[in-house]
Amino acid sequence: MADYMLIASRDPFSTNDVPTYYALARDLKERGNTVTLFLVQNGVLPARPSAASDLLTSLSELGITVLADEFSLRERGIPANGLAPGVAAAPLDLVVDHLESGAKTLWN
């Protein structure tokens, strides 16, 4: 089993490719992998409690770690202490941590 870091820079309000990417995270988790979904740029938009945030909460309930870049949240006026259930703010450094450890790291 592998460690996956899936970086999501886009949001489901803009493109249906994003739910497909979330589905990949789910499928990887269901195969027994360790999966982190890291939201950055407009990828953090569904982290605000909204019409799309249930998508992230459901991933979290599957055991996927869902994190949102602190800078991207602040840039968009999204309070880090008011995120959707299952989503936590984190520094971008965590992505580099995963790169260092050899995690399979994807960008979308």
């Binding site: 996956y4 990417y21 990949l24 499928d27 990887l28 195969r31 399979k104 994807l106 960008w107 979308n108």
Partner: peptide
């Protein structure tokens, strides 16, 4: 679901 299986069978995944 086959995409995840292919990801597991390769060393790197470039999206």
């Amino acid at each position: 679901a086959g995409v995840a299986g292919l990801a597991d069978s390769h060393d790197l995944v470039w999206h």
